[in-house]
């Protein structure tokens, strides 16, 4: 490893550090108290109630959670979301890392490429995406026109339940710009001296990559993995925009948060929506915890 291991700070400093920490944390603690905690606990309470937004919530115990088991849309949304998370995240991160590595050094016009690759993410999840996506994957879209050259008559990829989800996975991979930028920033963080020293030692490019770049980048890879996974579990806008909020065709793009939204905002069943949200939160927490446990085996910190 590139960094040296050393002792923990002495215990005598602990006290003053604790005091300093709490001063540093004043904004965060205020935010937690005022902005985060109130809605968080409110939603936890609502998960055990029948709450139609317009009248006061009524406690109904575990009813909301019981209801999930027999709710076919709930299960459909679980399926859709899991497929999406496990397919699109590895793809997106692989793209982002690969491109970040290519763009990190030694090429003319880097600024141009970086901006070009980031362009799709800039557009974000604007309403325009729905129309763009139809232009590509629709009945009369680019892909089918290309297939037409080979005499294949394709149907709309967005309206086929078997392919609709894939178009959203493509959408997510297409916007790999954000994790790419974070990777780039992470690569910038690696001290050039380490590479110089390695070169003096005669280490090959491959060896520099596996022995310097990858280990020092692992905290950033880990960050992207965790946060992109959390984000993917909560995918909402893309699905909402592309399917017009329905999650169709035939529930094939009914993402979990889209279903929460439908229950809460369209159906006015905020109690059930809150219960669904807490189940999601627990699921994400479990996945994140697993990531953290596994991280001990592959993430290296400079402060160890």
């Amino acid at each position: 490893m590139a960094t040296t291991r050393s002792r923990r700070p002495r215990a005598s400093k602990l006290h003053s550090q604790g005091l300093a920490a709490h001063i540093f944390l004043i904004p965060w603690q205020l935010g937690l108290l005022l902005v985060t905690a109130i809605p968080l606990f409110a939603s936890l309470y609502l998960a055990f109630t029948d709450y139609n937004i317009l009248s006061s919530p009524e406690f109904n115990g575990l009813e909301n959670f019981r209801r999930m088991f027999s709710d076919e849309y709930f299960w459909a949304s679980v399926r859709v979301t899991l497929v999406y998370v496990f397919v699109s995240i590895p793809l997106q991160l692989a793209f982002a890392l690969l491109l970040a590595l290519i763009l990190d050094r030694g090429l003319r016009g880097l600024a141009f490429y970086r901006s070009a690759f980031y362009l799709p993410s800039l557009l974000g999840t604007s309403v325009a995406i729905a129309i763009l996506w139809r232009q590509i994957f629709g009945d009369d879209g680019l892909i089918n026109q290309a297939l037409g050259l080979f005499g294949v008559h394709g149907e709309s990829w967005l309206q086929n339940p078997a392919t609709a989800l894939s178009t959203l996975i493509v959408l997510n991979v297409w916007t790999f710009g954000s994790p790419m930028v974070i990777f780039l920033a992470g690569l910038r963080q690696i001290p050039e001296e380490l590479y110089e020293a390695a070169r003096v030692d005669g280490a090959t490019v491959v060896r520099q990559f596996t022995h310097i770049t990858v280990p020092l980048l692992t905290p950033i890879i880990f960050f992207n993995l965790i946060l992109q996974t959390i984000g993917a579990f909560q995918t909402f806008t893309q699905a909402h925009v592309v399917s017009g909020g329905t999650g169709g065709p035939a529930n094939s793009t009914l993402f979990y948060t889209l279903y929460i939204y439908q229950q809460g905002f369209a159906n006015f069943d905020m109690g059930y929506a809150s219960a669904l949200a807490w189940v999601l939160m627990i699921a994400i927490a479990v996945v994140t915890a697993i990531h953290f446990i596994l991280s001990k085996y592959w993430v290296f910190y400079g402060d160890d």
């Binding site: 139809r134 629709g138 009945d139 149907e155 709309s156 967005l158 309206q159 086929n160 399917s243 017009g244 329905t246 169709g248 065709p249």
Partner: peptide, 10 residues
């Protein structure tokens, strides 16, 4: 029109 031709319901 088929659902494909009209790009979905509505």
């Amino acid at each position: 029109l088929t659902l494909s031709e009209q790009e979905g319901m509505s």
